[in-house]
Simulated scan of single mutants.
Amino acid sequence: MKKGYVQVYTGDGKGKTTAALGLAFRAVGRGMKVIMFQFLKGMATGELKSAELLKPNFEIKRFAESKKFTWDMTEEELQELKSKVREEYEELLRILKSGEYDIVIVDEAMAAIHSGLLSVEDVLRLIEEKPKSVELILTGRSAPQEIIEKADLVTEMKEIKHYYKKGVPARVGIEI
């Protein structure tokens, strides 16, 4: 790819990760290499199994994996998670800058910011230091204005109606 852009999928609606995965699926079909870093996702999901089928051109790495929400953690658990995320962020930055992948997806980047695991400056550094030829995709609710301003494409998913509010849990193959 000659020129890679920065895309942001944000908003309170469903579909941010799904949009990023759709882009990944399309890119792999064109022979591109894609890596997705998922923050704060700990449960088994269909995309993990699909990624295995698309190797070596598609890979998912999970960062800040936890079975607990950050607000349910003790101070010690939270500090341990933050320390781990610092190491993982350095790995993410190294891989991004390597140019080994055509597309780098940072799923739930905004959740990592809002949880205090990454700073806005950390994510802006990813944007600034990405190689010219790499497409960078960032997802998550409530993207900070500074990130929106640096991005080349921003799509907001807006919830109008969701069956979750009627008590329907996440469904295998649809949400997970």
Rank of each mutant, 00 (worst) to 15 (best):
M1C: 04
K2E: 13
K2I: 11
Y9Q: 01
Y9S: 03
Y9H: 10
G11T: 06
K14I: 03
T18C: 10
T18F: 12
L23S: 13
F25I: 07
V28R: 02
R30W: 07
G31T: 02
K33Y: 00
V34P: 02
V34L: 04
F37E: 01
F39D: 00
K41M: 00
G46P: 07
E47T: 01
E52T: 02
E59F: 01
F63S: 00
E65C: 01
E65N: 00
K67L: 06
Q79H: 12
K82C: 14
S83M: 09
E87D: 11
E88R: 04
Y89Q: 07
L92Q: 07
K97H: 08
S98W: 03
I103L: 12
A109N: 09
M110K: 04
I113C: 04
I113Y: 06
S115G: 10
S119L: 07
D122F: 12
V123K: 09
R125K: 15
I127P: 08
K132V: 09
K132L: 12
K132S: 12
S133F: 09
S133Q: 13
S133A: 13
V134T: 15
R141K: 15
R141I: 11
E146G: 13
E146N: 14
L153Q: 03
L153H: 07
L153M: 08
K161Y: 09
K165P: 01
K166R: 14
G167D: 11
G173M: 13
I174C: 09
E175T: 10
I176C: 05
